[in-house]
């Protein structure tokens, strides 16, 4: 007997993500999928954001790592509820993990949910977590050639944060190529040059993100 199906292999996953998105919509939560290489500065960006925003915006964080709860602990120390997902080997977060994490957060009291994805420029770009916006972090020490090398990651980002600009004098990072290649891929992307360590540039990013919450 032959049966015609024509359904996406990951249909079951997509359905879970669609349900998650409905729940977040119902609670009026703006959801960010924060991505970037290991060590780019995702958690540092989050810590800086929290210190500038937590008095006016109710935030919550879902942390994704293979192992340890180090990042969730850092976030909680900043005064914001965080749930740690340990994938124990999986290289990206998926809808089922997010569904589990969401159940542990007081979503009715959250305006802004940030999902810090696994440090990885490849796989997370391919999995929709039901987010409203994707934000990626690239650090100066990684090199400007990562933009054309990982197009899906940077093409789908609403904002790209270039971190560790304090290290520019010690690298050969080509700023001109960075801006040119990024704008070619993604003409409307918002670009922020920051140094989390020296508290440079994060105020501008905070203003931008706040404007997204207001229009949500």
């Amino acid at each position: 007997m032959e049966i015609n199906i024509g359904q996406h292999i990951l249909n079951a996953h997509q359905e879970i993500t669609a349900k998650n998105k409905e729940v977040l919509l119902k609670h009026g939560v703006l959801t960010i999928n924060l991505m970037g290489s290991p060590g780019a500065g995702k958690t540092s960006v989050l810590e800086a954001l929290i210190s500038k925003m937590k008095s006016s915006v109710r935030m919550a964080v879902i942390e994704g790592d293979l192992y340890t709860s180090k990042d969730a602990e850092r976030i909680e120390a900043s005064g914001v509820p965080a749930v740690q997902i340990n994938t124990r080997g999986a290289c990206h977060l998926d809808g089922k993990m997010i569904e589990w994490a969401m159940q542990q957060l007081p979503l009715a009291d959250v305006d802004l949910l940030i999902i810090e994805n696994i440090g990885n420029l490849v796989c997370p770009a391919e999995f929709d977590l039901g987010e409203d916006l994707r934000i990626s972090v690239l650090s100066v020490t990684e090199g400007e050639d990562k933009i054309p090398k990982y197009p899906l990651m940077f093409k789908d980002s609403a904002a790209v944060i270039l971190n560790k600009v304090d290290l520019l004098p010690y690298t050969d990072f080509n700023m001109e190529d960075f801006y040119r290649d990024l704008r070619l891929l993604n003409p409307d992307v918002a670009i922020f040059e920051v140094s989390c360590r020296l508290d440079k540039g994060m105020d501008e990013f905070t203003v931008w993100l706040k404007s997204k919450i207001k229009t949500n």
Binding site: M1, N4, G6, Q7, L185
Partner: peptide, 29 residues
């Protein structure tokens, strides 16, 4: 996969070729 238009250089969207579907199953009932 391409990201920019060969004619005008602006971004493109992919409209076909990203399927990952189970199309048909054949088996004994």
């Amino acid at each position: 996969a391409r990201w920019t238009c060969p004619e005008c250089g602006q971004p493109v969207v992919i409209i076909a070729g990203q399927e990952l579907h189970l199309q048909t199953l054949e088996g004994d009932q």
